[in-house]
Design a binder for these strands. Structure first.
Length: 798
DNA sequence: AGCACGCCGACT
DNA sequence: GTCGGCGTGCTC
């Protein structure tokens, strides 16, 4: 029998199945979806079996056998193998990348080059001997300086090179002590009278006949130690086995089970529509304003699915995967839920994944990659906040979780729910066309009024002589809340404000030597750092250009705001939440918890506070500058601004107290701002659609972004131009090709970056043409040091 | 991608 | 004379 294997080598000519013979004794064990170790050229690599067949057209002399099976149970289902092929086609990625992204990182192979001793220690050069004293091999990374000597030995045949393939995490085991089943058996054991410890343990065992207990637990309960246990085990009082243990990802402190809430008529209507379609592959767009109770609909829909014996996937943006959210699911579904989020270690993620694989859980809640949960009887997929750009992976495979969700829903004939207060234009357009079924929740579940939103024209403030970043009305409102002991959230769009160092004499801003971007000041380490290539250097004391001492640090936007805020309301207790204060694990949650407990009056932060903040005492939200995202050179700028403003506004007045929102802007008449004021989604949609139609962007056109990089500016622009010429000659006349042009950040890591954009409505040959392009690229340009990446349906084109 | 084979310059 | 530079070709 022959196995088709996709090997773990991400390169174009390798991106296809290779045939391997399945050794006779492995035949009954081998299944598609298993990982295998195979010889490839003169090395060994890991691969995935994608198919098993009887015969091959290949010369039997060429066929090599599989070296080793890595799994007992396939890590990928036939469905996921099929999905990988689709992803390869749709996102123009390597099939191996698509396969890898579906399994937990802990299972991905680690390769380590090493040198193995093949002769006796005396036969090799003396200076190499210490390396092999303990073990018959040495890791290449440990013996770099001895490379040439090792090579000589290799020529003699005394040492051989090979690669060690291992996976990152082993299964965690715990020692289980199984006490003998009969009292007689225990009583028959003789213990010396002076072995007090053993006698004590024996008493415990006699009282716990037949019990299986974790070793650590036994030591605690019986007040004993491991050696004592072992002596009794030797005497036959108990047996020891190693059992697989799950790491406990978070303290599941007694979470009380909660029942469903009752639904409002609007919720009920939406829920009924979903319930009627549970065995169709329909996609619903659940458009509900913030606080309208979408989550309850999700929970009850999942409940229906579980009752039908099926499974559900619930995707949330990473940032809103808060403990509160997790608790809500655990309350409803108990230990039927696996949670996958970035706070887990690789081992913990793997444990959660295995629970899914073995069918021990029925619901998975997680960020983007949870869409690949290896369920076999999927009954429902939900994407909450479906407009979030984090659902699109920004490196290969550049897939969108929404597209994968719809593919899987068709496979399983189960529905998809896309939920959002501010749907993406793409999704809303599809709902308008009837491709998706639109469900609307117009009112907040507890009928709280929407917050009162005021737009403040900062140009007027400037005219009045107010040059601070706080307008008079906002400053007044902050003071008022402080007096009333209510809480305030201030929101700053990060972009355009990142910290840098400026010389006040010559105006120099410190730049990265490798990239066309200014260096970012990191207060904690007193370093200047490039966020693109990782370059860093010490903060200078004088200007590197003119040696002036008048250099000024502009702290992160939020730091600066904090300073100014202290001038406006010196008595306020301020919590700052940004990349600097949330770098440590769990810091995010700690800050939120502190704010929730009323330990601060004002929470000041960036994007990350826009979501998941649900505290009753917040009555004022201030957006310091609505313009920063609005004027980015990206076709989604208005959409993102509208979404952000709506989301931030939703943080105010979540409970009984009414909320007020102040939005400061220098372009207050822009429709993204005026329409976000009253959450008028439909008018915003209409207007933005008109813009998209006029400029030829999604959802009217599909977009492909192709990026080129090379060390040499002329070369990269030449390749980009060649590509555009090629595309123009191959694609239909109605397709628009923009560029080539230098990317917004024209140089990263000493490589120049160019890009071009394909905008098309219908382009049946596109896939084929792009494949052809890749072929040219790999044979001619790659060798000359170029890279090319293709992003289908990019979330942004900057 | 990685690795071997192969053909030309600077060292013991 | 050999060590080693990287061009080119292949991987079931």
């Amino acid at each position: 029998m022959i196995a088709e294997v996709i090997v773990d080598v991400a390169a174009h000519p390798i991106d296809r199945p290779f045939d391997y013979a399945i050794p006779n004794k492995l035949e009954p064990l081998t299944e598609p979806g298993m990982r295998v170790k195979v010889p490839f050229g003169n090395r060994k690599v890991l691969g995935f079996i994608t198919n098993i067949k009887q015969t091959t057209e290949l010369d039997s002399a060429k066929i090599k056998p599989i070296h080793e099976l890595m799994d007992v149970v396939p890590v990928l289902t036939p469905e996921l193998l099929e999905l990988a092929k689709w992803m390869k086609e749709k996102t123009v990625c390597f099939e191996i990348d698509a396969l890898q992204v579906m399994i937990p990182a802990a299972l991905r192979a680690k390769y380590e080059k090493r040198f193995v001793l093949k002769a006796s220690l005396e036969e090799i050069a003396p200076q190499l001997r210490p390396f092999f004293a303990k073990r018959p091999f040495v890791r290449a990374s440990e013996a770099e300086e001895f490379f040439s000597q090792l090579k000589k030995e290799m020529d003699k045949g005394t040492i051989m090179a090979d690669t060690d393939i291992s996976q990152q995490t082993a299964v965690k085991k715990v020692r289980m002590i199984h006490i003998a089943d009969s009292l007689e058996q225990l009583e028959a054991i003789e213990i010396r009278a002076n072995a007090k410890q053993q006698l004590k343990l024996m008493e415990y065992m006699k009282a716990n006949v037949g019990r299986a207990i974790e070793s650590a637990q036994l030591q605690k309960e019986a007040g004993t130690t491991l050696p004592t246990i072992y002596s009794l085990v030797d005497k036959g009082a108990a047996s020891i086995s190693n059992m697989e243990a799950y790491r406990d990802p978070q303290l599941l402190a007694q979470i009380e089970k909660k029942e469903s809430l009752s639904l409002t008529p609007a919720q009920q209507q939406a829920f009924d529509a979903i319930r009627r379609s549970l065995d169709t592959s329909r996609t619903f767009l659940l458009h509900g304003i913030t606080g309208s109770g979408k989550t309850e609909i999700y929970l009850q829909s999942i409940d229906q699915v579980l009752k039908a014996g099926k499974e559900a996937i619930m995707l949330v943006p990473e940032i809103s995967l808060t403990p509160q959210m997790t608790v809500r699911f655990k309350e409803r579904f108990g230990d039927m839920v696996a949670v996958l989020h970035s706070g887990l270690s690789a081992g913990e993620k793997y444990d959660e994944w295995r629970k899914i694989q073995r069918g021990e859980v029925k619901v998975v809640v997680g960020a983007r990659s949870a869409i690949f949960a290896p369920f076999q009887n999927l009954g429902l997929i939900i994407l909450d906040e479906e407009h979030e750009s984090s659902y699109k992976q920004d490196d290969s495979p550049r897939y969108h979780a929404r597209d994968v969700a719809i593919w899987r829903s068709e496979f399983h004939q189960c529905p998809v729910i896309l939920g959002s207060a501010t749907p993406s234009l793409e999704s809303y357009a599809r709902a308008q066309k009837g491709v998706y079924e639109l469900l609307v929740l117009e009112k907040r579940a507890q009928n709280q009024p929407l917050p009162n939103v005021e737009i403040i024209d900062m140009r007027e403030e400037l005219k009045k002589g107010n040059r601070s970043m706080f307008s008079v009305p906002l400053a007044d409102a902050i003071r008022e809340r402080l007096e009333k002991k209510e809480q305030v959230v201030l929101f700053l769009n990060k972009r355009g404000y990142s910290s840098f160092v400026l010389c006040r004499d010559c105006g120099t801003v410190m730049q990265c030597p490798n990239c066309d971007i200014s260096l970012t000041y990191h207060r904690s380490t007193e370093m200047m750092k490039c966020h693109y290539c990782g370059y860093d250097e010490k903060v200078p004391t004088t200007c590197p250009e003119c040696e002036s001492q008048h250099i000024r640090f502009f702290g992160t936007g939020t730091q600066k705001v904090e300073e100014e805020l202290a001038k406006v309301v010196p008595e306020a207790r301020v919590l700052r939440m940004d990349v600097d204060t949330t770098r440590n694990k769990g810091a995010h949650e700690k800050i939120l918890a502190a704010f929730g407990e009323g330990k601060a009056d004002i929470l000041l932060g960036t994007q990350m506070i826009a979501k998941g903040l649900d505290f009753p005492n917040i009555t004022l939200v201030g957006v310091l500058s609505a313009d920063t995202t609005l004027h980015l050179p990206d076709f989604r700028a208005a959409e993102k601004t509208y979404q952000l403003l709506t989301q931030v506004s939703g943080r105010a007045g979540r409970d009984k107290l009414p909320g007020t929102v102040y939005i400061q802007s220098y372009t207050p008449e822009h429709y993204a701002i005026t329409l976000a004021k009253d959450q008028l989604f439909e008018p915003f949609y209409d207007q933005e659609m008109a813009m998209r139609r006029a400029s030829g962007y999604p959802p009217y056109f599909y977009v492909v972004n192709i990026q080129f990089t090379h060390e040499d500016l002329m070369t990269v622009s030449e390749y980009a131009e060649q590509t555009v010429r090629y595309l123009n000659s191959q694609l239909s006349p109605s397709t628009i090709i923009i560029g080539p042009s230098a990317s917004l950040i024209a140089r990263v890591n000493n490589r120049y970056r160019y890009q071009c954009l394909i905008k098309y409505k219908k382009e049946p040959k596109l896939s084929e043409v792009l494949q052809q392009l890749i072929k040219i690229y790999r044979t001619e340009w790659l060798r000359k040091g170029a890279t090319l990446s293709i992003d289908m349906n990019p979330t942004s084109v900057m």
